[in-house]
Amino acid sequence: MQNGKKQTNLYLLLVLVMASWGLNVTATKILVSHFPPITMTSFRIFTAAIAVFLFLLFIGKFRLPTRREFLYIFAGSLFNIFLHHYFLASGLTMTTGTNGGLILGIGPILTAILAVIFLREAISIPQLIGLVSGLFGVSLIVLTGGQGLSGASLGDIYVFIAILSQCFSFIIIKRISGSLDPRLMTAYMLLIGSILLFFTSLIEEPSGLAQMSDHSPSMWLLFLTSALLATAFGNLIYNFAVGQIGPSKTAIFMNLNPFFSLIGAALFLNEQIRFMQILGFILIIIGVVLGSGALPELIRARKRIRNP
């Protein structure tokens, strides 16, 4: 009973994480239009890293990693932080917040595929149908973004690379979660990833540090909200859930990302939601429910309720 309550609480936290991540697409879209994207992202993630380290010190979970654990941490930093945030920040300067959010919705499908390949998880026929549906939904969004088949932008491709990198990192986190607390791994990944992004920004945005000043208090408030709620809290809870219930089950909740992203883009960016985007979103949701195995799990749960 106690375990069931803990799992329910974890699920509720995951819903809040998805809300923060979905709305963070809009926040990031706004931030990259005011700050140099890579420089801003490195500072935002560094701020999140400090917050997570302080939290771990408070709960007594901080320790230095072993050499083997550090290799996993560095790999996780490369995919979960550096590549994911580099391509996300860069991509959102070249595509809409709506498209970015919807493309991020392919996360559960990609996670399911990678879990089959690297964790040897079995895949059923419904899951296979879901994978096809989800991939078709994302293709529809990317290739028909208002201009027919010529509408695919480099920004859309960058956002896809961003989510692919993040999903691959979930496999890495799951592999090491038995010996290394995912929350501690998150802190180190954020720190190392922010450093990698900062040195990259020095090359790609030589005047980035100078451009970080002279912004309104509202922009800095948005910066801190994004860093603390979406990046620190979001990554902390999500990576912990990956270690507890596995990447595929945790990824089920990522289907909420596009929903919150669409709401954020419509409310704060005044972006119009077109029919093809709605259709792509529906296909992604179908893909998530089938591809991540949520539907069979729901059916089994209903049977257990009816036949206790």
Rank of each mutant, 00 (worst) to 15 (best):
L16N: 11
Q127F: 08
G287N: 09
S124D: 02
G148I: 07
I172Y: 00
N99I: 05
M185H: 02
S150A: 14
M185S: 08
V32P: 11
E121A: 08
V116P: 00
S213F: 09
G264L: 03
L92Q: 05
V138E: 09
N255Y: 11
V15F: 00
Q272H: 12
R44K: 09
L222Y: 06
L202F: 01
S213K: 12
S177R: 03
P126Q: 03
G76W: 08
I282T: 15
F275M: 06
P36F: 11
E204I: 13
G101E: 01
V288L: 06
F168L: 12
V159Q: 00
F62W: 07
I141L: 10
T98V: 08
A227L: 00
S42D: 02
K249W: 02
L290Y: 14
I113T: 07
F259L: 14
G148K: 11
N235H: 15
A122P: 11
M40P: 11
A227F: 01
L190A: 10
T200W: 02
T200K: 08
A112G: 02
L283I: 12
Y158L: 15
L102P: 05
P182A: 00
F74T: 15
F46W: 07
A294Y: 14
I195P: 12
G146E: 01
N255I: 12
G60Y: 02
I73F: 06
F118V: 05
T111F: 05
R175C: 00
A187F: 05
S169C: 02
G291Y: 10
L10P: 07
Y11C: 04
Q127Y: 07
I203H: 06
A187T: 10
L57G: 11
G293I: 04
A266V: 14
S77Y: 04
L10S: 12
A294T: 06
T28A: 14
S42V: 08
L298Q: 11
L262I: 15
D181H: 13
T8F: 13
G4D: 13
Q277C: 03
I73Y: 00
I203D: 03
F260K: 10
I129Q: 06
R306L: 14
N9F: 15
S194P: 08
S150T: 06
D214Y: 13
T8C: 05
E271A: 02
I278K: 04
Y72L: 05
K29V: 12
G105R: 04
N270E: 10
G107Y: 06
I195A: 14
L164R: 07
L64N: 03
A51K: 09
Q2E: 14
